[in-house]
Design a protein around this nucleic acid. Structure first.
Length: 928
RNA sequence: GGGCGUAUAGCUCAGUGGUAGAGCACUGUGUUGACAUCGCAGGGGUCGGGAGUUCAACUCUCUCUACGCCCA
């Protein structure tokens, strides 16, 4: 097949992906090979591929393709997460659009509808991962609600319960009144909002006064509506102002409830009046104060229902006009907050805030304006209400101990290391994890209650029944588990645990986890806990955390800002390979990635470059290699490129071992473009091109060059494949076809990684280095003195070094002539044992290469001034360098104390620059 | 309030105790039988400010400033 003249990613991507998937290339059977395992962070089944997924999955795919090429039994586990809240929201929203709602159905009917939705629409993100080229094992695609996965979840819950690590407790939870479910601390996002701080008088009970004679206590609050459930006023134990009234009571306005004044360290004497109202049922701090004051959780007053509307408290003191009101203004309608303020103001319990205008006039306001840290639910987006309910909790503190130890003693390495502190900080202060959710979609909690409220926890109803005894009526807990509870089992439940399968044996623990730092606590830390609990060991030895992909201006991408970059759009425009390469090359450890579309474009250009290089090879009979080992090479240029391949593969291995994706990408980029295309292909042109002027190269030389070039290109394709899988696979097959090989049974995706062993002579590499240096210097010189590109210049080399003689003895001269437009070359003076007299061109442009000087004949070409300026510029530079080095070398401290290597280098550099100064002075003299 | 991170060329970013690099952008130029999505050459940086350690600091330490993130 001949390659089209331009590379069109869209033309090949879909074809190769299908080929790989249909032929089982993502996980070839390698029963005896060492395992390498990564589990993919399961995206929400409702999800679609965003730029963060593109980064996360590109990095994982690079690693897994690399390990697969290195011969490992590479398994990349993939699947989706049932995403309790998100998925239920999606389906409910669809129902709403049809004037329908969840509660029109039974629980089972609704869950069936969610499954229906999943089967119809749940495959979006998995299709998109394919477009990115991700080589996951789709044959074992997982879902967190698969039957075997559910079994793992239930077993874990029951085991934790039996070990006392899961328990039921009545305490305040973060209640999302929109979704009407509890959520965990991590799902709460605090935002600073502009709000109000109201000051109220709470009247002291008849006759009691403060020492100052004041008959009320001033309290301040940002949440006045909660006063309907106030149960105390707290003052600091050392606060003299209130010492005399501790133990006395105030009578609340509106409800008339008589509540005590308690001493508690929570009250900050510096803040406001120093006295705070205590609502144990609706505030986390107050809950603790209430408990310390001896109020049992069950006795704490609750004034809100699940929608955060006011309900009657247990003591029946909330006036009728408040019942049913929302907690605060909603949809433009005043709520309990506004009414409480209004009533207190009417009854003169409100202490107005006095503000001064710019002119110094005093103005009264109901409240003091203030920034308030307000908790929001990350999914529902409404203000969280601390609410007193019974929920299931995981004793995270106990489960965190072993993971903490694992990280501390190096059993688990976190990359970059700077995240360790954050990890410890969170793990060491971890709170009980609320795992029950008041939803219908998810893993239903395996707990059954009898009518007296006794609980029976078991993996099945039968087992629970046998615990409870025959005939005891049981009802199952209606709640489901936090989605993260199940995804915490992902590294082993996806392999078949709790069955002791071969997969579990071979692929657990996994080898590496790659995730964004944003889910370090949500997911990574919980996998560590569950891995230790269920498997007795860490689920992976290494955790690589990458950053966020930001918009070009550095802002966080978000739908509301409208600055979201769609990875699929980039794939359409530049190809998946270019997007992937961009992600890799930008991924240095510990930094967010700023979107830079120009750079994606640059990597598309790189793909095109490689495409064209391959086309060139093909047109010169350079096709696929049959060996992984480098072919035998005699010619310097061929030995040189073999050495360069060796170096590149070594550098690449180092970068991959360090998980330096940027270094790895740059290594292969530089090699392919700056070494292979820019130099090697140019240097071998005289060998391959049938040019009347040049003596044709020998058949052996042509054959060797074709072999080596084909091999080197193959090595590029292999090394680049993890980063750019599509174009490399396409070219791999094209190269095979050129040599009449059918590589369809030997696709690149499962080919062999370069074998770096090869013998390369130093003479050969020195010769090419000399050649390159000459060409580069000649080009620069020509440019600087303005010699037209087309002008050919004759040259003389006086007293050539052995190295120079070798260069000209081989094919070097033709290549140099071609690339520098300098030539032909004549050697004169002392050549080995002979002395060959010859003309010395004058005026001449002197080009230094290593120990040699090439005299380029400028007769009739330019005015001397330009060359003189060039030489003077170089002379100035060498003088400056020499002077600086001389200064350093004359410093006794440096010579005595610096490392010997540094001193040696300085001496050598000084000698070199001194010689240059001399040479350039001579050249100027000769010119004049 | 606590913790972490970042500050290097116009832009986006690498980097090392021995005197600074890539891509893009910019300037000049198009001779070479793959490639103008390209080639060749070039200009451009007191490595955020200050102090210290050292023979030597962009690199290590301290401090200041600015920006960002996380936790409370």
């Amino acid at each position: 097949m001949t390659l089209p003249t331009t590379f069109d990613p869209a033309d090949i991507e879909q074809r190769w992906y299908a080929h790989w998937e249909e032929n089982g290339c993502f996980r070839p059977a390698r029963p005896d090979a060492e395992a390498f395992t990564i589990v993919n962070p399961p995206p929400n089944v409702t999800g679609s591929l965003h730029i963060g997924h593109a980064l996360d999955n590109t990095l994982q795919d690079i690693v897994i393709r690399y390990e697969r090429l290195r011969g490992k039994d590479a398994l990349w586990v993939v699947g989706t997460d049932h995403a309790g809240i998100a998925t239920q929201m999606v389906v409910e929203r669809q129902m709403e659009a049809k004037q329908d709602k969840r509660t029109n159905y039974s629980r089972d009917e609704f869950v069936d509808k969610v499954w229906e939705w999943k089967h119809e629409s749940g495959g979006t993100i998995t299709r998109q991962l394919r477009r990115l080229g991700c080589s996951m094992d789709w044959s074992r695609e997982q879902f967190t609600m698969d039957e075997h996965f559910t079994k793992a979840v239930l077993k874990t819950f029951v085991d934790l319960y039996n070990d006392g690590l899961i328990y039921r407790d009545k305490r305040l939870v973060n209640w999302d009144p929109k979704l009407k479910t509890a959520i965990s601390d991590l799902e709460v996002e605090t935002q600073d909002l502009k709000g109000n701080f109201w000051h109220f008088k709470y009247p002291l009970e008849d006759g009691v006064t403060l020492d100052s004679g004041q008959d009320y206590i001033e309290v301040a609050t940002t949440r006045p509506e909660t006063m309907l459930a106030d149960m105390a006023v707290a003052v600091h134990p050392t606060d003299e102002r209130y010492a005399s009234v501790v133990g006395k009571h105030v009578v609340l306005p509106i409800t008339g409830r008589r509540i005590p004044i308690v001493a508690d360290e929570h009250a900050d004497p510096e803040l406001g009046s120093g006295a705070v109202k205590i609502t144990p049922g609706h505030d986390f701090n107050d809950f603790d104060v209430g408990k310390r004051a001896g109020i049992a959780a069950g006795d704490m007053l609750n004034m809100l229902d699940g929608d955060a509307n006011v309900c009657q408290t247990a003591d029946g003191l909330v006036p009728h006009e408040f019942l049913g009101l929302h907690r605060f203004k909603k949809d433009g309608v005043d709520g309990a907050r506004e009414l409480v303020v209004q009533r207190l103001k009417e009854q003169e319990y409100l202490i107005p805030h006095i503000a001064k205008t710019k002119k110094g006039e005093e103005v009264e306001h109901d409240a003091e304006p203030r920034q308030i840290a307000t908790p929001f639910g990350d999914r529902g987006g409404v203000v969280i209400e601390p609410w007193l309910t019974d929920q299931w909790y995981v004793d995270a503190e106990k489960l965190a101990q072993k993971p903490i130890q694992d990280v501390r003693d190096g059993t688990i390495e976190i990359v970059p290391k700077s995240w360790e502190k954050t990890f410890f900080n969170w793990m060491e202060n971890i709170q009980p994890w609320c795992v029950s959710r008041q939803l219908w979609w998810g893993h239903r909690i395996p707990a059954w209650f009898d009518i007296d409220g006794n609980v029976f926890v078991a993996e099945s109803e039968e087992a629970a029944q046998s615990q409870a005894g025959e005939g005891v009526a049981l009802t199952r807990d209606p709640d489901v588990l936090d989605t993260w509870f199940s995804s915490a089992l992902w590294p082993f439940a996806t392999l078949g645990w709790p069955e002791d399968t071969d997969l579990v044996k071979k692929h657990f623990p996994n080898n590496l986890l790659i995730s964004g730092f944003d889910i370090l606590f949500f997911w990574d830390a919980r996998m560590l806990m569950m891995g230790q609990y269920n498997m007795g060991r860490a689920p992976w030895p290494k955790l690589y955390l990458h950053g966020l992909v930001r918009a070009a201006d550095g802002a966080k991408m978000s739908k509301s800002k409208g600055n979201v970059v769609d990875p699929l759009g980039l794939i359409d425009q530049y190809g998946a390979d270019a997007l992937r390469f961009f992600m890799a090359s930008m991924e240095s450890q510990g930094r967010d990635i700023k979107m830079d579309e120009k750079r994606v474009e640059g990597y598309r250009n790189f793909a095109t470059k490689l495409w064209n290089a391959t086309r060139y090879c093909q047109s010169n009979g350079i096709g696929a290699s049959t060996t992984v080992k480098a072919p035998k090479a005699h010619m310097a240029v061929n030995q040189w490129i073999i050495g360069e391949v060796q170096q590149t593969s070594a550098d690449l291995d180092t970068a991959m071992a360090d998980l330096r994706f940027d270094a790895a990408a740059n290594t292969i980029y530089q090699f392919a473009w700056s070494r292979f295309c820019d130099w090697y292909l140019e240097l071998i042109k005289p060998v391959l091109v049938k040019d009347d002027v040049q003596p044709p190269a020998s058949d052996a030389a042509i054959a060797e060059t074709r072999k080596v070039a084909g091999w080197a290109l193959d090595q590029i394709l292999v090394m680049l494949h993890p980063f750019m899988p599509f174009i490399t696979e396409e070219l791999w097959h094209a190269q095979g076809a050129l040599n009449g090989m059918d590589r369809s049974k030997y696709p690149l995706i499962t080919a062999k990684w370069p074998d770096p062993r090869a013998e390369v002579s130093k003479d050969a590499t020195d010769a090419i280095d000399w050649t390159i240096e000459f060409v580069a210097n000649a080009r620069t010189a020509r440019n600087e003195i303005g010699i037209p590109p087309g002008t050919k210049l004759k040259a003389v080399i006086q007293d050539p070094s052995d190295l120079a003689r070798k260069v000209f003895g081989g094919n070097g001269a033709a290549a140099m002539e071609r690339l520098s437009r300098v030539g032909p070359f004549i050697m004169t003076g002392q050549i080995g044992d002979h002395n060959v007299p010859g003309p010395v061109p004058k005026p001449a442009m002197e080009i230094a290469v290593g120990d040699d000087v090439v005299l380029v004949d400028l007769a009739g070409v330019i005015d001397i001034d330009a060359e003189q300026a060039r030489l003077e510029k170089a002379l100035e530079a060498s003088r400056k360098e020499a002077k600086s080095l001389e200064g350093r070398l004359s410093n006794a401290n440096f010579v005595e104390r610096a490392k010997p290597e540094a001193v040696e280098k300085a001496k050598a550099d000084f000698a070199h620059h001194s010689a240059e100064v001399e040479r350039l002075q001579g050249a100027l003299a000769r010119l004049g």
